[in-house]
Amino acid sequence: MRLQVSTRLAIFAVLELAAREGSQLSVAEIGEKYGVSSHHLAKVMHVLGRAGLVRSVRGAGGGYQFAGNARRMTLLDVAQLFEDLNSVEQGAADATREEQTLSDVLGEIDDIARATLGSITIATMRKLVDRRAAAGSRNAEAGSSRRKGAPLRPVR
């Protein structure tokens, strides 16, 4: 499954902020970690703010704070702000049987994707990230150093 760059950024930003509940991070700080422009990230943060997942803090040292419950907010809650995660439309009335059958097959995939995103809370993600760190996974190490500063692409 591919997620749009904005969705991935939103998930990473929420994870960063949730890990520091009560304190705040500036758009630039988050952007630096993931190698993205503040301009793009600012738009993403605005959407998250409007949905009440984060709250903006004004003044010097301003930025964003996590505003939800990390044990209840799921990846689906974040992703659906940026993606259309509804099942592929049932073929229109005049769709061929082949089109309808293909819709059914793709619908199965969408259902599983939604159930998966909806079952993983920010807290569960955090645990998975920490476990990866604890395992000292070479993969993760290589991945994060490679990613640092590199543009975020919509990879799998």
């Binding site: 909806g118 079952s119 993983i120 645990k127």
Partner: peptide
């Protein structure tokens, strides 16, 4: 949803 959230949180 509930059992999925639960089992996921259990790793």
């Amino acid at each position: 949803r509930l059992p999925l959230l639960f089992f996921r949180s259990e790793g």
